[in-house]
Simulated scan of single mutants.
Amino acid sequence: MIKFNIRGENVEVTDAIRAYVEDKVGKLDKYFNDGHEVTAYVNLKVYSDKRAKVEVTVPAKNVTLRAEDTSQDMYSSVDLVEEKLERQIRKYKTRMNRKPRNAVPTGQAFGDEFAPLDQADEVTEESSEIVRTKHVALKPMDAQEAVLQMDMLGHDFYVFTDADTNAAHVVYRRDDGRYGLIETE
């Protein structure tokens, strides 16, 4: 069963909007096993230029599903987000079903909250094929130096070893042009 946490920024979450979100995103319930409660965090934003942004995050046991869409119509954005989340679930489950049976069982990889995937629901994804492998030496540095290295290479992300903690971290360029840092534990 999917529980909903719906929040609005610059928009009042009316009963009609709440019902539409719960109806659309609630369709994903068929991909989860009975008895497992999953919470869908829905964030609705309306910008000054009347564009609406819909973000949905569904944290499961070993995977977090997330999709967002921005358009002039909030309802069409909800539709597109639901389709994106459904594709993600089918893609992940198909990938796990293709692994050898003695590898990681689907229940362990994605949590036992996911229901089995029917053969008819499988997705073929050639885009997930690894076509190139790179080997890099992780040089100890701070995050600012990693950003400089990333910019010099013209990449959108850069993996490095933090000089202080000796842990692997990732810096990346966000869609808004600023930078993000992923710290590992």
Rank of each mutant, 00 (worst) to 15 (best):
A109S: 05
Y92Q: 09
N102L: 14
E22S: 04
V54A: 06
D34S: 12
S48Y: 10
E113S: 04
N97V: 08
R98A: 14
G26S: 03
V63H: 06
A16N: 09
S128R: 13
L117Y: 01
M74K: 05
F32W: 03
K24D: 07
Y47I: 01
I130L: 10
T64N: 07
E126N: 13
R90M: 12
E122W: 10
A120R: 14
I17L: 15
E126Y: 15
Q88I: 05
N33Q: 15
K27D: 02
T57A: 13
E68L: 02
V131W: 12
Q72A: 14
K99Y: 15
Y31W: 12
E22F: 07
E22A: 02
Y31A: 02
E83K: 15
T106H: 04
A115W: 10
N33A: 15
P105G: 03
R66L: 08
P59D: 04
E125C: 13
F114I: 00
Y31I: 06
S71L: 02
N43Q: 15
P105M: 05
N62K: 02
V78G: 07
A120Q: 13
E22L: 02
M96A: 12
R132C: 13
L44P: 01
A16L: 06
D49F: 10
V46D: 07
N102I: 13
S76R: 09
E129S: 07
T133M: 12
V54Q: 01
Y92W: 10
E83I: 05
Y47A: 07
V131G: 13
T133R: 14
Q119P: 05
M74T: 03
A115V: 03
E129H: 08
E22V: 06
R66Q: 12
K99F: 14
A103Y: 15
N33T: 11
Y75T: 01
A40P: 08
A52V: 10
E82I: 01
K50V: 11
P100W: 11
V123D: 06
R101W: 12
R87G: 02
T106L: 04
V78E: 04
V38M: 07
A103M: 13
F114D: 00
L65H: 05
I17R: 08
K50M: 14
D112Y: 08
A19P: 00
T57M: 13
A120Y: 09
I130C: 09
V56I: 09
A120M: 13
N102P: 01
A120W: 08
K93E: 09
V81G: 01
R18Y: 10
A40W: 11
Q119V: 12
V131N: 14
F32A: 00
P100A: 10
N43G: 11
K45A: 15
T94A: 03
V81R: 02
E55N: 10
V81P: 02
A67W: 02
V56W: 05
K50Y: 13
D34Y: 06
Y47R: 04
L44T: 02
D49V: 03
F32N: 01
Y92I: 04
V58Q: 01
L80I: 09
S128L: 15
T124S: 15
R51V: 03
S127T: 12
K45F: 15
R90P: 12
V21M: 03
T106R: 02
K24A: 07
P116M: 10
A52C: 13
E83N: 09
T39F: 01
S71Y: 00
K53D: 08
Y75S: 02
F110R: 00
A52S: 11
